[in-house]
Simulated scan of single mutants.
Amino acid sequence: MVEELYSLDESNFKDVRPVYGLVFLFKWTGDDERHTTEPQNEPGLFFARQVVQNACATQAILSVLLNCADKIDIGETLSDFMTFTRDFPPEMKGLAISNSETIRSVHNGFSSQEPFVTDGKDDGGENQDAFHFVAFVPFNGKVFELDGLKSGPVNLGDIPGHGGNLASASCSGIHGDDWLSVASPAIEERIARHSAGEIRFNLLAIVKNRKHVATEERQRCMRRVEALDRELSSRGRVQQPEAAALSALKQEENFALESQRAAALRVAEECDVTVALEEAKFAQWRKENMRRKHDYVPFAVKLLDLLAQKTDFDDVVESMKSKAKHREDARTSAGEGSEGIK
């Protein structure tokens, strides 16, 4: 699943571990290539060139998933796709993504309805800013930046304590999330390239489903409780009348086991709360996706039609035209004033 992060602080990552990969959104500029090191190939690493517009987010997520197939159950469709494209060059892999009916269907299924075609310019006639997604993943003891607009993956360095050992696991692997200490400075460096006033960035973490994490933790806690119950039963729990007869050591040991049991039950209860919160969050996401993808144009057209039957729209239109003209005159006056000062 995907979790949005609001900083690169260690505490932020701690709450969502394990982190399989990061997806970073930033304002794209044409001179971005000048600031990066030379791309290099890495055996076994999935990297695809982006060959279609407005697909960088989907491609960034795929870059994480397909490089973590040993840690994530990516399903039959993506497994087959990964096997099919294994020996393809980056350009062919990009074409394979664009030609995959399943991937295209899922991608389009999450796009919002665009009933009106725009010219790609804002209200002032200026071209709108372009934004781009890139992925950061650990692989074979190294951290890579995967940008579909580049010719290949960029090696950001070795994971601390890993030394590029190819025998070690990729994607979180045996060194946990140490790879984040390599990826975070690279993201901070990207942010620093922009002007101080630029705040339009977004950081997403591809993580294990938090509901599954909590469920597995709860199961571990309950197994621990059952083991402690068996231990206490075999030892005999301390009853008040018997306390004086028991040795101080046995009382202390039993008390320690009871404390461990209570602690495990508390963690299990916290996991229940987490599961409930995650289920509520997913339900809310489903509602938001339904609303975002729904086509409201027929409803809006019908509403305007009914209003037109009961309202004199000519007066409304003239009023709006007048307000628009006043705003335009004000912008023009402000522009002339600025030119005069210069």
Rank of each mutant, 00 (worst) to 15 (best):
F26A: 12
S11C: 04
F282Y: 15
L66F: 00
V225T: 10
H35M: 08
D129M: 07
T58F: 07
R266D: 15
H132L: 02
L307I: 10
Q309L: 11
V301G: 06
R331W: 09
R193A: 03
P241E: 13
D80F: 05
V182R: 02
P43F: 01
E91H: 08
V267S: 04
R200T: 13
H212V: 15
R190M: 14
A48C: 00
L65H: 08
F131T: 06
Y296D: 12
I199C: 13
G176H: 05
K310D: 08
P89I: 02
F13L: 01
G157N: 04
N99P: 00
R230S: 15
Q219I: 14
P115W: 00
E3F: 06
F88A: 01
L203T: 04
F81D: 00
S7T: 06
N202M: 13
T83R: 11
E231N: 11
R17K: 15
G161R: 00
S322C: 07
N67I: 00
L5D: 09
H326M: 15
E270K: 12
L304Y: 08
P43H: 07
V267Y: 03
D312F: 03
E252D: 14
G173K: 02
T274F: 07
M92W: 01
L180T: 01
A334S: 10
V225K: 07
S333R: 14
T77F: 06
V51T: 08
Q284K: 04
F282P: 02
K293P: 00
E270D: 14
V52L: 06
D119K: 05
A248V: 14
Q309P: 01
P160E: 06
R237I: 13
A308E: 12
F84H: 09
R49A: 06
A227F: 03
H107W: 08
K321A: 11
R235A: 14
D73W: 04
F47R: 02
